[in-house]
Design a protein around this nucleic acid. Structure first.
Lengths: 107, 107
DNA sequence: TTGTTCGTCAACCAAATGGTTGAATATGCA
DNA sequence: TGCATATTCAACCATTTGGTTGACGAACAA
């Protein structure tokens, strides 16, 4: 679980990757089209997409010679839940809260 | 803003730093006490605390020779809101969450 | 004063990160 | 077939990251 938080937060720490996620929120896109607005090589964007895929934040499916990228919003859930446990619930018993979270994430 | 998301997510990407935040959720702590459970030097933990401070996730206040570390839960809000904007994932089970809250606040 | 504790600083190191370029692979099309 | 397009691979590079150690200054205690 904490390994997945590692990769999720690390993936989200880069502004290019967050921009990619925002783009994919609107629609699925091919790798070339994802890369178009960025001032870096296609290979660099391709690497970012690999990182997002390994973090589970997007999925990629090849149809013909085009690889389509699709956002996977559920992957953000664990990290989002983890973060919310700070801002709002800091006065609570953390052991109980973590048991609650585990039950939530399992379900 | 996106710079602050950079530093926030980068700070959260390290398991040692997340563990520190969890510890500080329970109580304010001196640097030496924060470092105690970790199998690394005090200097290394001190660096992690600098990163958390720069991200605004904690604050540090020196009283005498002891520097106290305090969590700043609001700092996570921007990042949390950003993640929520992807809000296509299922909400937490709010009924279960409210039961949890009641039990916590009663106990 | 002398010594001890608290914490940071400086220099260093290995590994990871984010980028480049050019070649390679795979698919589609005339 | 032959060529263009879509994407990744491989090698390389500079910078950042996360750790180490030893020296240091500041605050307490004897």
């Amino acid at each position: 679980m904490s390994q997945s938080l590692d990769t999720t937060f690390a993936a989200l720490a880069d502004p290019t990757r967050r921009a990619i996620l925002s783009m994919l929120l609107e629609d699925d896109m091919a790798v070339t089209d994802v890369a178009e607005p960025f001032e870096m090589s296609l290979a660099a964007v391709s690497k970012h997409l690999v990182i997002l895929t390994k973090a589970g934040l997007i999925s990629q499916e090849k149809r013909g010679r085009v690889k389509w990228c699709k956002i996977e919003p559920n992957a953000m859930k664990e990290a989002s839940v983890w973060m919310q446990s700070f801002g709002q619930f800091e006065e609570l018993d953390m052991d109980a809260f973590e048991r609650f979270l585990e039950a939530e994430l399992a379900g």
